[in-house]
Amino acid sequence: MKQSTTTCRHVQTEDRWLDVASREDIPQRGARRLRVGDQTVAIFRTANDTFHALVDACPHQAGPLSEGIVHGDCVTCPLHNWTISLVTGQAQGADEGAVQSYPVRLFDHRVQIDLSRVPVPVKKLTGGEMSSGGENVG
């Protein structure tokens, strides 16, 4: 099977990849936020240097996943400790729900994201208690 050389070049210059940050801009086991229109996308970097992007809203109560603790290939939401897969956007364990994920790639030490997919609407907020990680206290 021969591979056309022009295909190689084509993929890497395709417009759908948006260059968003240098690899070192995102801390390992951390995230940075990207504003896309009126929505925020969280770009994660795991301990093993893989990069992932999710809409920055937990499927539970739209908590900012970018602010959670990143462990393995999951992030734990800072509001109520739901654990979400960075790869699939699916809630883990007994919880059910999913959040939109976007393809991310690392190209020449640059983090690039493909936003060409249409994001799903984010669930509206409802009430709920805060996690042990950070209740409100004066």
Binding site: R29, G30, Q61, G63, P64, I69, P78, L79, G134, N136
Partner: peptide, 24 residues
């Protein structure tokens, strides 16, 4: 190890349900 801290202690403010913060 900041990546091992909950967001409130990383951001030095209290996260609220809409993702904004409170400052005291």
């Amino acid at each position: 190890d900041y990546q091992s801290r909950f967001i409130n202690e990383r951001a030095h403010a209290n996260i609220q349900k809409d993702g904004t913060y409170s400052v005291v």
